[in-house]
Design a protein around this nucleic acid. Structure first.
Lengths: 114, 114
DNA sequence: AATATATATAAGCAAACTATTATATAAGTG
DNA sequence: CACTTATATAATAGTTTGCTTATATATATT
């Protein structure tokens, strides 16, 4: 069976979005865990609006989805996206970022929404 | 055996470069054939300096290499690059662009350097 | 040597990008 | 209801991008 390809314009749009260190790291992290905005703010040391703008761009292209849990909005990688196969292929080439989650937990900043 | 990963900053830099429709198409085309600047000018319908600037960026990151053949400078995909495995993985998701080469040939604009 | 062709570089400009601060909205808590 | 927390949106400023035109450089041809 052949791999489904994606129009070149769309791939260019995806890569442009992922061609930003912050967003690329976010997506790599979301491949293994869900995160809320305030966690990303801690991790990336930028303002909350900056993070909101990054995740909105990812959401606009359907790369991530959001679900509200109380006061938090939890972001997840959208495994149903047409771009998901491309994205996972990409992420394989990136080093694991789990240490960031560990740091959050050590600082007691991980949001536990159960 | 594990896949060799690439630093996240470097991957972001690669994706930023490939997040441009013109450059992404160029790289896809270079995966199967070599091209010179003047051919890209015909294909992409932009100015010659615009093409030169695109290929220079690709060359600066080591994605492509150049070899002079008489008056032409031929660009090739650099299969020795650390980024080559990532790039080929990416390109698999893009539709074949061979029709562009066919169009060049039909118009008699393909440079044959032997 | 003069001219033509292929490519590169420089300068300039409009559009896009990413951050910031200020403010609005939505949910949780006393 | 007042107050806090989490997130989004708006306005704005500095930077980067991708084109253009003009010009320089390198090779080929006559």
């Amino acid at each position: 069976m052949n791999l489904a390809t994606v129009e070149i314009e769309k791939v260019a749009a995806i890569l442009k979005l992922l061609g930003d260190k912050t967003r690329l790291t976010m997506v790599k992290m979301l491949a293994t865990n869900d995160y809320c905005v305030c966690e990303f703010v801690e991790i990336f040391k930028v303002s909350q609006p900056a993070i909101s703008q990054h995740v909105r761009k990812l959401k606009d292209l359907g790369i991530v989805t959001e679900t509200r849990k109380g006061q938090w909005i939890i972001y997840s990688l959208n495994t149903d996206s047409d771009y998901y196969p491309l994205i996972t292929d990409l992420l394989r080439h990136l080093p694991n970022q789990d240490y960031k989650l560990q740091e959050l937990e050590e600082q007691g900043l991980r949001i536990s929404c159960d």
